Simulated assay, not measured.
Amino acid sequence: MQIRRVLAATSAAVIAATGLVACSSDSSDSASGDSESSEQDGPIRVGTTDAAKKAWAVLEEQAEAAGLDIEIENFADYSTPNQALEQGQLDTNNFQHLKFLAEYNVGNDSDLTPIVATEIIPLALFWKDHDSLDGIEGESIAIPNDPSNQGRAINVLVQADLITLKEEGLVTPTPADIDTEASKVQITPVDAAQTPSAYGEGTPAIINNSFLDRAGIDPNLAVFQDDPNSPEAEPYINAFVVRAEDADNETIKKLAELWHSPEVQAAVDEDAKGTSVQVERTQEELQEILDRLEEAERNS
């Protein structure tokens, strides 16, 4: 059994310039094959943005024990794993939540499909040298400025009773939806990668879990986080995703379901320092959530 890990740290600009080339000459056959087939021609090529995490090494071990040949490819940004999947460079990816996928599908006229849920990573507010929200009124809070995470970050502050919206219940509020007169704090949207720097300078900041890890910030230092078990959290369920024609590929599903093995989950918990919440939803439930999010995205 052969397991290959390819660390493709190529930037989006380079990939866009050179094109996404399939890893093997068999990719076109795999992409156009019978969706009902459980056969997999060649290794299962899996894309992610955090291949260095322990969970991926453990997944490799579990895949080998299950008789699956896999190849893990790491990408340096959040756009190219879906592009690579669409163009046949990958067979599946696992790096995104359903909200991000809905935005990608609508924006690119795509039909990428979730097959197995993985986890929800709570989004949290951090404030250097503070262990509560006491005294935060009047502060300006740094939040990620990308559309997918900005709305969620604003809702974190709504749940913390720091921000009031002009209209309640918005899934993806924008800064324009904030009632500034009724709110207790202001927000400063910045690039997600800059939120740890803002935190380091003493500014309260909402920081994505992946950037916490890179900046060496303990996620347990959060002064507030959203509730991963609430209905409002459904858009942020992470999942293994495939092309629509592979939605019934039993070999890929078998690999994806290994993510819920005790061994992989122990590694996920270690990687996330106990903040990850395992999610098990059926493929049909995931698709229903995605359909709802895509409709909302089209109407926005």
Rank of each mutant, 00 (worst) to 15 (best):
D26H: 04
Y199C: 03
K184P: 06
A76P: 08
P231F: 00
K166G: 07
A160E: 04
I141K: 04
L258C: 04
V46G: 10
L162K: 00
G169A: 11
Q283H: 04
L170E: 02
P173F: 14
A57L: 02
D218G: 06
Y199P: 13
I187N: 05
A9K: 11
Q2K: 14
V242Y: 05
A266H: 00
G33L: 06
S197I: 14
L221H: 05
T80G: 04
S25K: 06
A13S: 13
E285S: 15
S183R: 13
A266L: 00
S148K: 09
Q225W: 14
A153R: 08
E257D: 04
T172I: 11
T172K: 14
F95Q: 12
V156C: 00
A12F: 08
P204E: 03
S148H: 01
P228N: 02
P122Y: 08
I154M: 03
D291P: 05
G202Q: 03
H260G: 01
R298W: 06
I143G: 04
G169N: 11
A66Q: 12
G200Y: 04
K253E: 15
E103A: 09
N82E: 10
F240P: 08
I3G: 06
E60I: 07
Q2I: 04
T251K: 09
E285C: 02
G138V: 10
K253N: 09
S24E: 09
I72Q: 01
S140W: 08
T80F: 09
G274Q: 01
I72C: 00
S11G: 11
I121S: 15
K54Q: 15
N249W: 13
N149V: 06
T275F: 00
D129E: 11
V190N: 08
K54C: 03
